[in-house]
Design a protein around this nucleic acid. Structure first.
Length: 477
RNA sequence: GGCGCGGUAGCCAAGUGGUAAGGCAGAGGUCUGCAAAACCUUUAUUCAGCGGUUCGAAUCCGCUCCGCGCCUCCA
């Protein structure tokens, strides 16, 4: 089965292949750095990360560009409020964004493109649009004339053919010829940040940065363009209008959009008090791996209902997988390789791959992993799992983790934005081993009270003991 | 009003014509000095409701109810 994605443009599931060679040229819409980005934003960025990782698993090289919008109305307003320059203000939240992204183990795109570092590219794009007659100016601002691009609406599947200039009663309220037109370049006013250009002093409109940067890094036609569903219209529609007006060629071949996240079945909003940033959740003590798992486990085109019950369930699920990993690596096993296990391993990998290939159906892919884990636990219980089967199980976990990346625990000291927690007093391995030895002796002499006391004492320090056939196994909680 | 997405067990969720995956939670059990972990059994005769098509529908069609998103800068 080949890799397939749902394409917003065609509204169909399509087989994916890059346009040229083995490299996937991908553009994703990144953050606007006017504040800490919230957990809903990270749902989309996590989807993009899973997409990246699966493309790489499938043997493709990536050339991925993500923009950072570091000049816009909200940034200008917020920076002014804090009496900071645009640069100083956005630097804070850009840094925070990448710290958060790292905590969620999001891979860095090959190129991170801040808008303010690409003004010449935008100027060039606007000049090309002007030369081809797609623009007009009004009071120092430059606008895109939608009426000159008949295909407008093809991505969002809206029919704008009936809309004409003057239809809207309040057209005079806008300084545009048509209410649907959008601004390419905003005229300079007050003391706002601005750049000098042949078409006037000012700053870029939102949409032009993506067209200009995408094409300057990746060429005229991208393989994949991705973002949240709310960007379909108008942002991505406008990107198409700009880019295709310039090149006359399709801007992106596959448009992938992730659905929104809801909190406890409600829209996340500040007024409802259910607005969370990653740092809020970390502050509450939730593990970044659990958050990542929860965000990744619901297929990206489905609304994700974020609940704290779900977040706790995610943490338990990860623990189950980590326990399995520990069991496979630490249990004493008979020599050899059980062929049935080897075959079951291949089957699990096939199932996992089939799920991911099917438009990144992570729920189905995960089911393959859990069915495998249960089957292998049973095999171990029954004594049929052999020494060399360790590699089989490790292979499955490795494939799982190269996409989901949640098995390794994060050092709590390295969480962004979290004050140093009063953690359990540290205890060294040697001391733990000494306690375990004492407890083993206590058990031998049937001093169970002392044995339980040691277990409790270690638990307080975050050490969990498990008695197995081959002796005591311990792990840090 | 237009366009689009969705309603599957206590919660999350797969399944888009052939008789309900998986995770978490709950109950009972095996193992254990006790635990933990693991495993087993169990928890939807039923997929928002009603009607239709079909040998057969959660899956297709129609209607109704409910939730959500976009329709000028929100992932």
């Amino acid at each position: 089965m080949s890799l397939r994605f749902y394409n917003t443009l065609t509204q169909e599931l399509e087989v994916f292949t890059p346009l040229a060679g083995n490299t996937v040229r991908m553009y994703t819409c990144g953050p606007t750095v006017y504040n800490f980005v919230h957990i809903g934003n990270f749902r989309t960025f996590t989807f993009q990360d899973i997409l990246r990782r699966w493309l790489r698993y499938r043997g493709y090289k990536l050339d991925h560009v993500m923009n950072v919008t570091d000049v816009d109305d909200k940034i200008i307003i917020n920076a002014a409020k804090e009496n900071k320059s645009i640069e100083d203000y956005t630097a804070i939240y850009t840094k925070a964004f990448f710290e958060d992204a790292a905590a969620l183990r999001l891979q860095q795109p090959e190129h991170v493109a801040p808008a303010t570092k690409h003004i010449p590219e935008m100027v060039k794009a606007i000049e090309e649009l002007a030369a081809k007659g797609f623009t007009y100016t009004n009071e120092g601002s430059t606008y895109y004339r939608i009426a000159s691009f008949p295909a407008y609406g093809k991505l969002s599947h809206n029919d704008f053919s009936g809309m004409r200039s003057g239809v809207r009663v309040d057209v005079d309220e806008y300084d545009k010829a048509d209410a649907r037109d959008f601004v390419l370049w905003k005229a300079h006013r007050n003391n706002e940040i601005s750049w000098d250009t042949p078409f006037g002093k000012g700053r870029p409109g939102w949409h032009i940065e993506c067209s200009a940067m995408a094409m300057s890094y990746l060429g005229e036609t991208l393989d994949i363009h991705a973002g949240g569903v709310d960007l379909i219209f108008p942002h991505h529609e406008n990107e198409i209008a700009q880019s295709e007006a310039i090149t006359g060629k399709p801007f992106a071949r596959h448009w992938l959009h992730s659905e929104h996240l809801q909190i406890e079945s409600q829209k996340m909003s500040k007024s409802l008090g259910n607005f969370y940033t990653l740092r809020d959740l970390l502050e509450m003590g939730y593990q970044p791996e659990a958050i990542r798992y929860l965000l990744a486990s619901v297929p990206y085109r489905k609304k994700l209902n974020f609940t704290f019950e779900g977040l706790k369930a995610a943490a338990k699920t990860i623990e189950r997988l980590r326990d399995f990993e520990l069991r496979v690596s630490s249990t004493k096993l008979p020599a050899g390789r059980n062929q049935a296990v080897a075959e079951r391993t291949a089957e699990a990998i096939r199932q996992f791959e089939a799920g991911m290939d099917d438009d990144l159906n992570t729920a189905e892919a995960l089911a393959a992993i859990f069915e495998y884990v249960r089957a292998m636990n049973t095999t171990i219980d029954e004594g049929y799992f052999q020494e060399e089967n360790r590699w089989d199980a490790a292979r499955v976990l490795e494939i799982f983790d190269c996409v989901f990346d949640v098995l390794e625990a994060t050092d709590p000291a390295k969480l962004p934005g979290v004050q140093a927690q009063p953690t359990a007093p540290a205890i060294g391995d040697a001391e733990i081993e000494a306690y375990i030895e004492e407890r083993t002796q206590a058990k031998k002499s049937r001093s169970f009270a002392r044995a339980d006391e040691i277990r409790a004492l270690l638990l307080e320090k975050g050490i969990v003991l498990e008695d197995t056939k081959e002796g005591v196994r311990w792990k840090r909680k």
